[in-house]
Amino acid sequence: MSWFGSNKTAVEALVDGHYAALYRYAYRLSGATQAAEDLTQEVFLQAQKMLHQLRDPANAKSWLFTILRNAYLHRVRAEKSTRFVSLDGVAEVADRGNAPVPIVDSAQLQAALNQLPEVFRTPVILYYFEDFSYKDIAEQMNVPLGTVMSRLARAKMVLRQSLTEHAEVTTTTAHGEGI
């Protein structure tokens, strides 16, 4: 390893620079703190072993995020298949124009994310993290840019609908209690 002097210094720099972002990603992907801790740890263990593959430190973040997603996919494949919402036909449903913006709660958002199939969940998480361009996201997922764009559009719409429905249910419940 040349760009930081030693492997140890390089890996330490990766942990210092990227632990938080990777943990957030792992948490949003897996929906659980323990799984997020384990996944993040696994990423750095793998990174330490494969450090020679990282030629340019400027690519470190993308590289680590890719390792994390692969580690996550490896785990969920080993487990069972969860039932996800179908996104067929979602694109036909229009957003409610200028409706007031509901308060978005982190846990509620996670519940909505958990319903999305991974191929939709990953791009939408990366999109909202604002760390990566569409092109970066496409590369991390190893799919064409157009595929990322269309999955993103649908996933964003599903999230908005799901969070709006939750807000409506909350409002209705609140009113109901007053009666």
């Binding site: 140890k8 890996v11 330490e12 942990v15 210092d16 632990y19 938080a20 943990y23 957030r24 948490y27 949003r28 703190t33 801790e37 993040t40 740890q41 750095f44 263990l45 330490q48 913006v101 509901p102 308060i103 978005v104 709660d105 982190s106 958002l109 998480i125 909202y128 993290f129 604002e130 964003k156 999230l159 908005r160 969070l163």
Partner: peptide, 28 residues
């Protein structure tokens, strides 16, 4: 506006204290 609210909630994930230090000990 909704998008901005989702983005801000998405990034709102607390990081466990002490984990990076523990991880480094394990790595090295």
């Amino acid at each position: 506006g909704f998008d901005l609210a989702i983005g801000s909630a998405m990034r709102d994930v607390p990081i466990p204290i002490g984990q990076p230090a523990m991880l480094k000990q394990q790595l090295f």
